[in-house]
Design a protein around this nucleic acid. Structure first.
Length: 274
DNA sequence: GAGGGAACCTGTTTGC
DNA sequence: TGCAAACAGGTTCCCT
């Protein structure tokens, strides 16, 4: 499910719901999703207080008293908070009970999501090891570094943008939108892009993700935020899942191809193949 | 080392 | 209608 805007929306929601709460106990029903030592995870979380909520790319960060819980929602992970009674749910995999009686439940139909518990001083090395690119903001996302990296790669630009090394946070929905807005064909080799095209992709990445955060993310299939509310960004999608519809820019019919094994939507007229 | 595809899971949609 | 195959928003591993 979630790309950066959805994760940011979840972060903001949780910030309102669980800040300052002390963890009383844990229930782990699907131990496989805990990627660091399970015993340690179960032993060290109780007693920790949620100090703040953070995010890096698509990773959700729970800053606790002296640990950081790193949660990745992958395709369909989501959080629900219950102030008292917790309904029985088939796909609830981790339940965090707080001392005040509230419970945070992690649900994930496809069980792809992961959780890790780390010492805060190891966080930087953790993201370094993942080769995670900069945040998609004017301050962090440097155009010249981006262009330099493109020049060194033959990868199709769409696959390259999805691998999180150029910039963090793009997923299959927004990468389609960014390339449509930048008028670049998704299969174009990275190194074939002109300066103007690279600049347009850089600019639209910041623009699209920023706009999507404002709209509370996109609700497609199953995503909702921590309050179970829908985002509205899907109303602004121009190509994603628009196969067979007319391009809002030129009227040509939006096409779908497979690229790197994933559905890829584009306008054959606006986004000419090189 | 770079790039492509499979694997991880389950539910839903599509096609015969 | 019923069944099987394809597909779904992410990341990582393995193979070439």
């Amino acid at each position: 499910m979630p790309e950066l805007p959805e994760v940011e929306t979840v972060r903001r929601g949780l910030e309102k719901l669980i800040l300052g709460k002390k963890i009383a106990s844990l229930e782990i029903r699907y131990p496989k999703m805990i990627k660091t030592d399970l015993d340690q995870f179960q032993k060290e979380l109780p007693g920790q207080v949620v100090k703040s909520m953070g995010r890096r790319g698509k990773y959700l960060l729970f800053y606790l008293t002296d640990k950081v819980l790193i949660s990745h929602l992958r395709m369909e992970g989501k959080y629900f908070y219950y102030p008292d009674q917790v309904p029985e749910r088939k796909h609830a995999h981790v339940l965090i009970h707080f001392e005040d009686g509230g419970t945070l439940v992690y649900e994930d139909v496809r069980k792809f999501g992961t959780m890790e518990l780390l010492a805060p001083e190891l966080l930087e090395a953790y993201f370094l090891s993942k080769k995670l690119g900069p945040e998609p903001t004017e301050q962090d996302f440097d155009l010249e570094i981006f262009r330099g990296a493109l020049k060194k790669s033959k990868k199709p630009i769409k696959s390259h943008l999805l691998d999180q090394t150029l910039v963090a946070g793009l997923g299959n929905i927004y990468v389609n939108e960014v390339l449509w807005r930048a008028k670049v064909h998704p299969a174009s080799p990275s190194q074939s892009l002109t300066r103007a095209e690279a600049t347009a992709i850089h600019e639209q990445t910041i623009e699209v993700l920023g706009q999507a955060v404002e709209k509370g993310g996109s609700t497609i299939r199953t995503y909702t935020n921590a309050f179970g509310e829908d985002g509205t960004m899907q109303d602004f999608h121009q190509v994603y899942d628009k196969t067979g519809e007319a391009c809002s820019c030129c009227g040509a019919i939006i096409e779908k191809i497979q690229l790197g094994g994933r559905g890829t939507h584009f306008c054959p007229k606006c986004q000419r193949r090189k």
